[in-house]
Protein backbone atom coordinates (compact mmCIF):
# COMPACT_ATOMS: atom_id res chain seq x y z
CA UNK A 1 0.00 0.00 0.00
CA UNK A 2 1.03 3.57 -0.50
CA UNK A 3 1.70 4.24 3.13
CA UNK A 4 5.20 5.52 2.58
CA UNK A 5 5.19 9.02 1.18
CA UNK A 6 7.78 10.66 -0.98
CA UNK A 7 8.43 13.89 0.83
CA UNK A 8 10.38 15.87 -1.74
CA UNK A 9 8.92 18.52 -4.01
CA UNK A 10 10.56 20.73 -6.66
CA UNK A 11 12.75 17.76 -7.70
CA UNK A 12 14.25 17.38 -4.27
CA UNK A 13 14.92 21.06 -3.69
CA UNK A 14 12.53 21.03 -0.77
CA UNK A 15 12.28 18.02 1.53
CA UNK A 16 9.68 17.89 4.27
CA UNK A 17 10.01 16.04 7.56
CA UNK A 18 6.63 14.36 7.42
CA UNK A 19 3.53 14.12 5.25
CA UNK A 20 1.51 16.69 7.23
CA UNK A 21 4.25 19.26 6.76
CA UNK A 22 4.37 18.55 3.05
CA UNK A 23 0.59 19.13 2.78
CA UNK A 24 0.88 22.57 4.38
CA UNK A 25 3.91 23.36 2.25
CA UNK A 26 2.00 22.54 -0.92
CA UNK A 27 -0.98 24.63 0.30
CA UNK A 28 1.28 27.65 0.75
CA UNK A 29 2.71 27.15 -2.73
CA UNK A 30 -0.75 26.81 -4.33
CA UNK A 31 -2.06 29.90 -2.52
CA UNK A 32 0.98 31.84 -3.68
CA UNK A 33 0.39 30.85 -7.31
CA UNK A 34 -3.32 31.81 -7.06
CA UNK A 35 -2.38 35.16 -5.52
CA UNK A 36 0.04 35.85 -8.37
CA UNK A 37 -2.70 35.00 -10.89
CA UNK A 38 -5.24 37.30 -9.26
CA UNK A 39 -2.79 40.20 -8.96
CA UNK A 40 -1.74 39.82 -12.61
CA UNK A 41 -5.42 39.61 -13.58
CA UNK A 42 -6.22 42.87 -11.81
CA UNK A 43 -3.15 44.85 -12.89
CA UNK A 44 -2.88 43.41 -16.41
CA UNK A 45 0.64 44.71 -17.09
CA UNK A 46 1.00 46.46 -20.43
CA UNK A 47 4.10 44.44 -21.35
CA UNK A 48 2.20 41.15 -21.00
CA UNK A 49 -1.06 42.10 -22.71
CA UNK A 50 0.70 43.89 -25.57
CA UNK A 51 2.83 40.99 -26.72
CA UNK A 52 1.53 37.70 -27.98
CA UNK A 53 3.04 34.31 -28.67
CA UNK A 54 1.39 31.89 -31.09
CA UNK A 55 -1.64 34.15 -31.45
CA UNK A 56 -2.35 34.42 -27.74
CA UNK A 57 -1.45 37.18 -25.29
CA UNK A 58 1.60 36.52 -23.14
CA UNK A 59 -0.54 37.10 -20.03
CA UNK A 60 -2.93 34.32 -21.01
CA UNK A 61 -0.03 31.93 -21.58
CA UNK A 62 1.22 32.74 -18.09
CA UNK A 63 -2.24 32.01 -16.65
CA UNK A 64 -2.47 28.68 -18.44
CA UNK A 65 1.03 27.60 -17.43
CA UNK A 66 0.41 28.56 -13.78
CA UNK A 67 -2.86 26.59 -13.91
CA UNK A 68 -1.02 23.50 -15.13
CA UNK A 69 1.52 23.97 -12.34
CA UNK A 70 -1.31 24.07 -9.80
CA UNK A 71 -2.96 21.03 -11.36
CA UNK A 72 0.34 19.14 -11.15
CA UNK A 73 0.74 19.75 -7.42
CA UNK A 74 -2.90 18.93 -6.65
CA UNK A 75 -2.66 15.63 -8.52
CA UNK A 76 0.84 14.68 -7.35
CA UNK A 77 0.64 15.63 -3.68
CA UNK A 78 -3.04 15.86 -2.71
CA UNK A 79 -4.11 12.90 -4.82
CA UNK A 80 -0.89 11.03 -3.99
CA UNK A 81 0.06 10.31 -7.59
CA UNK A 82 3.66 10.83 -6.48
CA UNK A 83 3.34 7.72 -4.33
CA UNK A 84 1.73 5.48 -6.96
CA UNK A 85 3.62 3.16 -9.31
CA UNK A 86 4.86 5.05 -12.35
CA UNK A 87 2.98 2.73 -14.74
CA UNK A 88 -0.31 3.53 -13.00
CA UNK A 89 0.49 7.23 -12.96
CA UNK A 90 1.28 7.28 -16.67
CA UNK A 91 -1.93 5.44 -17.55
CA UNK A 92 -3.94 8.07 -15.68
CA UNK A 93 -2.07 11.17 -16.74
CA UNK A 94 -1.04 10.69 -20.34
CA UNK A 95 -4.36 9.38 -21.65
CA UNK A 96 -6.34 12.58 -20.95
CA UNK A 97 -3.39 14.83 -21.83
CA UNK A 98 -3.11 13.29 -25.28
CA UNK A 99 -6.87 13.41 -25.93
CA UNK A 100 -7.29 16.95 -24.63
CA UNK A 101 -4.44 18.35 -26.71
CA UNK A 102 -5.90 16.62 -29.77
CA UNK A 103 -9.42 17.95 -29.12
CA UNK A 104 -8.42 21.52 -28.32
CA UNK A 105 -6.15 21.71 -31.35
CA UNK A 106 -8.95 20.62 -33.68
CA UNK A 107 -11.69 22.76 -32.11
CA UNK A 108 -9.64 25.93 -31.82
CA UNK A 109 -8.33 25.67 -35.37
CA UNK A 110 -11.86 25.17 -36.64
CA UNK A 111 -13.14 28.08 -34.53
CA UNK A 112 -10.47 30.37 -35.91
CA UNK A 113 -11.47 29.36 -39.42
CA UNK A 114 -15.13 30.22 -38.71
CA UNK A 115 -14.02 33.53 -37.23
CA UNK A 116 -12.22 34.33 -40.50
CA UNK A 117 -15.31 33.41 -42.50
CA UNK A 118 -17.50 35.71 -40.41
CA UNK A 119 -14.95 38.48 -40.74
CA UNK A 120 -14.09 38.29 -44.43
CA UNK A 121 -17.23 36.73 -45.82
CA UNK A 122 -19.62 38.88 -47.80
CA UNK A 123 -22.42 38.45 -45.31
CA UNK A 124 -23.29 40.89 -42.54
CA UNK A 125 -23.67 39.18 -39.20
CA UNK A 126 -24.18 42.29 -37.15
CA UNK A 127 -27.08 44.39 -38.41
Amino acid sequence: MAHEHKLEIFRGLLKFKNNTQKIWGVLIFLSLVTAVEVVLGIIKPESLTGNSVLGMKLLNWIFIILTLVKAYYIAWDFMHLRDEKSSFRRAIVWTPIFLVIYLTFILLTEADYIYEVYKDGFVTWNF
Binding site: L99, T104, L107, L108, E110, A111, I114, Y115, Y118
Partner: peptide, 17 residues
Protein backbone atom coordinates in the same frame (compact mmCIF):
# COMPACT_ATOMS: atom_id res chain seq x y z
CA UNK B 1 -11.91 14.81 -16.67
CA UNK B 2 -12.53 14.13 -20.36
CA UNK B 3 -16.15 15.27 -19.99
CA UNK B 4 -15.07 18.54 -18.43
CA UNK B 5 -12.38 18.95 -21.08
CA UNK B 6 -15.06 18.52 -23.71
CA UNK B 7 -17.09 21.34 -22.18
CA UNK B 8 -14.11 23.63 -21.78
CA UNK B 9 -12.93 22.91 -25.32
CA UNK B 10 -16.43 23.75 -26.60
CA UNK B 11 -16.23 26.97 -24.61
CA UNK B 12 -12.87 27.69 -26.26
CA UNK B 13 -14.40 26.95 -29.66
CA UNK B 14 -17.22 29.47 -29.17
CA UNK B 15 -14.88 32.00 -27.73
CA UNK B 16 -12.40 31.79 -30.60
CA UNK B 17 -15.29 32.01 -33.01
Amino acid sequence: ALTFSGFLAAYGFSRFK
